[in-house]
């Protein structure tokens, strides 16, 4: 009994971290850092967040850090419940689920995954592009259904497109976009790009107009962040400019593409195909896409590899430690001015 009380007291002495979501790596992270932080887990409770915070002596004023994932929206309403909050650590590279303006107003620091996932996401982008262009998933599906028929499958299965020599437009030449470019160059692709600004450090041709980029390209790969400027950056006009032999890959955010128009263009044969890891209204995926042979679909898993999970745990723990030791965050997120 005394030992139990001692454990409880020592837990209370640890800095409190509120876990919202819970995020991706929490299962792995918790045992590694439970001796350093007292994790509060509302997801294990049936109570609302507000009631949870007042229950079991978890007073809101004792919570100075939050750990969350991309699937949890940290809105102004959530922030209101946490008056002492000074840090949000998100396991995602994107931050569109956090009200950054409100964080700035309240003096809350934000740490993200930084460039941790860049190579994993780039691998996935190229995997989706090669799959949809060379028809890997479609061919696999075809062969499994054809196996008992006396026909030569390769006589009837339609040709794919080879990557070599193709012009690929990368939208968002940040760390992920650069990694995608490097990979595609090894396949003999010609790289072009659109980004917020022209990059002085690269020799790839820059296009400020999405329509011009699409007109020139055989494929577009979306690697940019979702914000007011980039919402529906791929609209019908861009898709028509890309053309009937063109492919789109999205490893950014679903809202970068006008999904209704994408479905229409695919159904009408106005574009060649798409590789999608993200969707506009997740987890909803338009039913029409599920029946199409020229699309490859993935459940928002671009960032997740065995390696990235381990690295993510280290980074999240490192950011929390840095904060509680009054050191600079490892991967701070720039808050809007």
């Amino acid at each position: 009994m005394a030992e139990e009380a001692h454990n409880s007291n020592s837990m209370n002495a640890l800095p409190k971290v509120l876990v919202l979501g819970p995020p991706t790596c929490f299962i792995t992270l918790q045992p590694l850092y439970s001796h350093k932080f007292h994790f509060l887990n509302p997801h294990t409770s049936s109570l609302s967040l507000q009631h949870f915070l007042h229950h079991h002596h978890h007073h809101p004023s004792s919570v100075s850090a939050v750990l969350c994932g991309a699937s949890y929206s940290v809105t102004a309403n959530v922030l209101c419940l946490l008056p002492a909050l000074r840090l949000i650590v998100t396991t995602s590279a994107g931050t569109d689920h956090i009200d950054l303006a409100e964080c700035r107003r309240r003096g809350i620091q934000v740490a993200g995954a930084g460039e941790l996932f860049s190579e994993d996401v780039a691998d996935m982008a190229v995997a989706l592009l090669t799959d949809v262009m060379r028809k890997i998933s479609a061919a696999d599906r075809y062969l499994r259904t054809q196996q008992n028929h006396d026909t030569t499958p390769w006589d009837f299965f339609t040709f794919g497109s080879k990557l070599a020599g193709k012009r690929v437009g990368i939208i968002g030449l940040g760390s992920i976009g650069m990694e995608v470019a490097k990979r595609l160059e090894s396949f003999g692709c010609i790289i072009l790009y659109n980004s917020k600004h022209k990059k002085a450090s690269v020799s790839y041709p820059f296009y400020s107009s999405m329509v011009d980029l699409a007109t020139t390209c055989d494929a577009l790969v979306l690697c940019c962040a979702l914000n007011e400027q980039t919402k529906h950056i791929i609209n019908r006009e861009v898709m028509l400019a890309l053309g009937k032999q063109g492919f789109i890959v999205n490893v950014g955010r679903g809202g970068l593409i006008d999904e209704k128009e994408l479905v229409k263009c695919l159904m009408e044969g106005e574009i060649g195909g798409a590789g999608l890891d993200v969707f506009e209204n997740e987890p909803h995926v338009p039913k029409e896409l599920l029946a199409m042979n020229n699309v490859v679909l993935s459940p928002h898993s671009a960032a997740f590899t065995v390696e990235s999970m381990m690295n993510l745990c280290e980074l999240m723990g490192g950011n929390l430690e840095a904060f509680f030791l009054n050191k600079p965050l490892i991967t701070p997120v720039m808050l809007p001015q």
């Binding site: 995020p23 991706t24 790596c25 299962i27 994932g69 991309a70 699937s71 190579e119 994993d120 691998d123 997740e282 987890p283 995926v285 993935s298 459940p299 928002h300 898993s301 997740f304 590899t305 065995v306 390696e307 990235s308 999970m309």
Partner: peptide, 14 residues
């Protein structure tokens, strides 16, 4: 697919 899950199809970094 009824929502994003961290352990869906975890692959390997090359």
């Amino acid at each position: 697919y009824d929502g994003w899950l961290p352990h869906l199809f975890v692959g390997n970094l090359l």
